[in-house]
Design a protein around this nucleic acid. Sequence first.
DNA 1: CATGGGATCTCCAGTAACTAGAGGTTCAAG
DNA 2: CTTGAACCTCTAGTTACTGGAGATCCCATG
Lengths: 156, 156
Amino acid sequence: MLGIGQLSAETGTKVPTIRYYEDIGLLPEPERTAGNQRRYGKQQVDRLRFIRHCRDMGFPLTDIRALLDLSDDPERSCASADTIARHQLQEVERRLASLASLRQELCRMIDQCAGGTVADCRVIESLADHAHCIADRHTTPAPTEQLAEPTRRDPA
Amino acid sequence: MLGIGQLSAETGTKVPTIRYYEDIGLLPEPERTAGNQRRYGKQQVDRLRFIRHCRDMGFPLTDIRALLDLSDDPERSCASADTIARHQLQEVERRLASLASLRQELCRMIDQCAGGTVADCRVIESLADHAHCIADRHTTPAPTEQLAEPTRRDPA
DNA sequence: CATGGGATCTCCAGTAACTAGAGGTTCAAG
DNA sequence: CTTGAACCTCTAGTTACTGGAGATCCCATG
Ligand SMILES: [Zn+2]
Ligand SMILES: [Zn+2]
Ligand SMILES: [Zn+2]
Ligand SMILES: [Zn+2]
């Protein structure tokens, strides 16, 4: 049985985040000590690892909820899991594409700057008007649900 | 002089967003009619366009604030504008890299699914344990400040 | 000049996914 | 038995908006 801090270390998830997952029902309420502190067993560790890996893969929590429901029931067809994953892949590819065009525009802006005053700066000028951009309207990056920070250190 | 709805149409920015930018001080308080409705002039239109273009490029509002300050003062050196832009480029490249590795892992997961039950599904299995992933720890995607949605239609 | 419907006004709440802090209790080592 | 680290609950803040309620305004007809 692990305390919340140990679970945190074990999975690379911050303590408040674990409690948050419990609040929103992603993690079931764990057992408690006589003094009301949480104790976790192996199942919970696995479940949290699953969640974290999904988050690392960029899945939003609603999808993770669905995936957890599925994985709780091994008899069912995996079709919807695959649909979710495929959808996520599309998302990722969409973002990749728009980031790539973003990168292009940023590069071009930066390259053209000669380093004088603001009045002559191509960066500022380009930002002021998309018409100064070559041709492609950059169809903005992403709806971007929050993706976990690289704050993660590895489990013991 | 434009009403807020016209400014909205002109710049592809939703009305509440315009008011929000005013609230947080990105846009100055505009003139008002006798009946307290906002009226905008050409300067404001340009300023909002600048902001939107920056957002489309993925700049966070704090950076945009700095860029606006700079562009208000054409005599200054553009060095810090360029620094901000270069920093943004790095951000974009960082995200591109992590999305690319994400894409790889998702593809692999999906490819391996044979389409049976959850018990045999490689997608679920891969999500349950990063050890099933080839080798690279996917160093999670991004801090991801909100990037504008593709809700944008073009100006008139 | 009256009236009606769309545009605007302000204010408040909610979104995603956490994160941080205050103020108080519990656990475990010495 | 006494610390002090870890834990508890609760609230509020983050980023960049978005949506709705209920009231008011503008302006184009009749
Ligand atoms: Zn410059
Ligand atoms: Zn552009
Ligand atoms: Zn499958
Ligand atoms: Zn992995």
